[in-house]
Each structure stands twice: as C-alpha cells, then as structure tokens.
Simulated scan of single mutants.
Amino acid sequence: MGLGLVLLAIHKGYRFIAVMPAKYSLDKQILLRYMGAELYLTDPALGFPGMYDKVEQLQKELPNVHVLNQVTNKANSEAHFRLTGMVVSSVPMHWRHCIWYWKVSENAKPRRQNHLCGAPGKHKIQGVGSGFLPEVLDTSVIDETVTVTTEEAMENAKRLAKEEGLLVGISSGANLAACLKVALREENKGKMIVTMFPSGGERYLNSDLFADVREECLAMTF
C-alpha cells in the first residue's frame, strides 16, 4: 500500500509521510525513502496504537493533512471486494463469501480458535495479529480463526520459494500454514483449499526470513 501511495503522491505533487513501527522490514523503509517519502518510525513495543498516536500528533502539527487509514476507510475494503476479490471470483466456481482470519503467536502451540483474539502474542509476521479489530472488518462472515506461529509462517514461505518458485513474504507463508492445517482435516480430504499470497519476498531481504542465506552470502569469499 505504501509504495502505491508514494507513486500517487509523486504524480499529484503531494507531500507524502509514512508512519510505521520500527520492527517493519528495513527493505520497506529503504524503498519508501528511495521514492522520496518522509518516514517516521515508532516504538515496536507500543504496537499499532503507538503508530496511530504518532499519526494524530503529526495531524495536529502539520497543516492540510489527510490521513489514509486503511483500517477505518470503508473504501479500502470495498476496493478489495471489487478489484482484488474479482481475481478469485473469475475462477469458474461457486464461491461462498468467506474471510479466513488467523491469530499468530510466537512459540505458542497452534490451536484452532472460534473467535478473534484482540491481544495476540509477540510475533514477527508483519501486517497481521496487530492486537485490535479494524473498523472495516465484518466479523459476522468469519467462520473461525487458525493459529500460526512465526516459525511455521517462515518455514512455509521458504517452501514456496524452493518448491514452487514463488518469492513471497512472511504473511503469505502464514496463509499457506493455515491452509495446510485446514486441508489435513478429515472432512476436507480431496477438497480444494484456496488462499492468496499478499506479500512479496523482496520486501523482506533484511528480515529474519532471509537471515540464513544473508549470513551465508556475507561470509562468501572469492
């Protein structure tokens, strides 16, 4: 979302300011700055509330500020329904409107959840398990939640790269991990499980996802 907004700001001649927790990947920070965005980092320990506090502070200090808040802006979910969702609905099958949502908790034994948890444990899966429910989220259409650990998410992201040639990010690995849990259920034997991979791996080169190969490459000699 950030890079798309930067491109729009460039073409419109707008000043663009991005605010994100410091735990977000260095690659994302570099790309935003490279494209000319101003960047403010917030204390990861404060989570999303700390990030929004910084946004409110900037909104008070700067003139003519418009905040594009994807968790409260109904146009965001509507765009996904009309555009992103159409990619899936173009498949010649009958789809039931369904949202899969998962809670992520580091070093926790995965377990099925039948409700959304507002206070997830510490984890390294960027973009999910933020500890609050977005205003635009319609929880009435959610059937269940599936717990995924950081380790499972990263393991499956690496599997997608090595086994399928798909360079995806950590949250995509979490999607696959959740789908595999669902697919293993007896009642789902022989059924097709569908998901989407919303993150690209090139945005995580400086994260723990690439730690082993990054250290290997840095240690290479000629």
Rank of each mutant, 00 (worst) to 15 (best):
K158E: 14
K162H: 14
L137D: 01
L180Y: 02
K74A: 05
N156R: 02
R185W: 06
A153H: 02
K162C: 10
K122E: 15
E152Q: 15
S77F: 12
E155Q: 13
V104Y: 06
W102V: 02
V146R: 01
E163F: 02
C117E: 15
E155G: 03
V168M: 01
S77H: 11
G121N: 10
G190I: 05
N107L: 12
I99K: 12
L137R: 02
I125S: 06
E144W: 00
N76P: 00
V128H: 00
L167E: 03
S105Y: 09
T72K: 13
R112M: 10
G118A: 07
A108R: 04
E144D: 06
K158M: 14
S90R: 05
H97M: 09
S90Y: 04
K109D: 12
E151P: 01
T149S: 14
T150N: 06
G127L: 14
T149A: 13
I125V: 15
F81C: 07
N175D: 02
L137Q: 07
G169P: 04
T149Q: 00
I125Y: 13
G129D: 05
N114Y: 15
G121H: 13
E106G: 15
G129E: 09
R112G: 06
M86H: 12
S172L: 12
K74S: 00
T150M: 03
S130E: 11
E186M: 02
L160N: 07
L137F: 11
Q126N: 05
P110L: 08
Q126Y: 04
R111G: 14
G131E: 09
A75L: 13
S105I: 10
T72L: 07
K122L: 13
V91A: 11
N175S: 09
R82C: 06
